[in-house]
Design a protein around this nucleic acid. Structure first.
Ligand SMILES: [Mn+2]
Ligand SMILES: [Mn+2]
Ligand SMILES: [Zn+2]
Ligand SMILES: [Zn+2]
Lengths: 154, 154
DNA sequence: AGCTAATTTGCAAGTATTGCTAACTAACAA
DNA sequence: TTGTTAGTTAGCAATACTTGCAAATTAGCT
């Protein structure tokens, strides 16, 4: 995703308005590695802008995704996640705390056998397991982060 | 998934009743390669047993999944898919017709870099693209199977 | 045939997300 | 500044998928 400043530029060019809501979200998403859901972003945004609508968060995230500024990540837990990291990468989901981490895989897996002729346009790899923090705390409290991942706290 | 006969055996042992609803669903799922959703199975089941409840379909599918007889597949289209193929495999989703196919990949991708220490318990790989049928029909009607995948037609 | 725990059903409710539209406002012009 | 207006926001209804609940039904056993 481009920086908030660059996004502002892009929006102006397309004669899209630079509203405070959008600017806030641009900032919350910038460099955000948390893979937040619309809901979690809404919660964080609400603290800085009480009254902002969840609908607006969905709207803005949708627009950014359409503009190719955000990637949609589905880790199978119901809610879509938004990822400003547009580079090619995959995800690891800690089944203990729910945190989502970027991972690189040694090689994009190739289809073998009969399906080898499919025209593949996208590959999504999601690993489920225990993150470093949760893995080592087997004897300690397992839910050090019981709640779902929260958007970057600015 | 075990065969309907074997499932009947298993159910009896656990003193679970062998209802007509369950038997019908065992049959519809057996060797089913369509990766049906609860809804699509319900539609097919309804033809052979008018009046069967969607709730019962969900219930039964849930039980079978818990018993390790079915695999849950999430291809990111909203509804969960049920897969009697418990072998290790991944999926290809045709973005044109929505069909879901089993695929083997040349090697389970390994995480590289900083995340290499994660304890991985499951890997899900979903390929999105055009299936053979849709890929070759670029100039022909693209929606030869407009509707979502339907459960095996008995 | 009768008993009863398991099962099925219908319906309400829950979660995530989108559709609709009236009220609002950023951006530009006068 | 004030006015204009196309673009935006916010609220709420509606949708899609799935689960919770309780009453009615029934498979399996005696
Ligand atoms: Mn990511
Ligand atoms: Mn499969
Ligand atoms: Zn963790
Ligand atoms: Zn196809």
């Amino acid at each position: 995703m481009h920086s908030p400043t660059q996004l502002a530029q892009i929006f102006r060019e397309k004669q899209l308005k630079l509203t405070p809501q959008r600017q806030l979200l641009f900032g919350l998403l910038h460099e955000n590695k948390a893979h937040p859901s619309a809901e979690s972003l809404f919660e964080v945004a609400s603290k800085q802008m009480p009254g902002i609508s969840l609908r607006t968060v969905y709207q803005t995230l949708g627009e950014l995704a359409e503009m190719g500024e955000l990637q949609l990540v589905d880790v199978g837990d119901g809610a879509k996640r938004f990822d400003p990291n547009m580079g090619e990468h995959h995800h690891f989901v800690c089944e203990s705390c729910g945190s989502i981490h970027d991972v690189e895989i040694s090689s994009t897996p190739k289809i073998r056998g009969e399906g080898a002729g499919y025209e593949v346009n996208d590959v999504g790899v999601v690993f489920h397991g225990k993150c470093t923090r949760c893995g080592e705390s087997t004897k300690r409290s397992p839910g050090h982060q019981a709640k779902k991942q929260v958007a970057k706290t600015k």
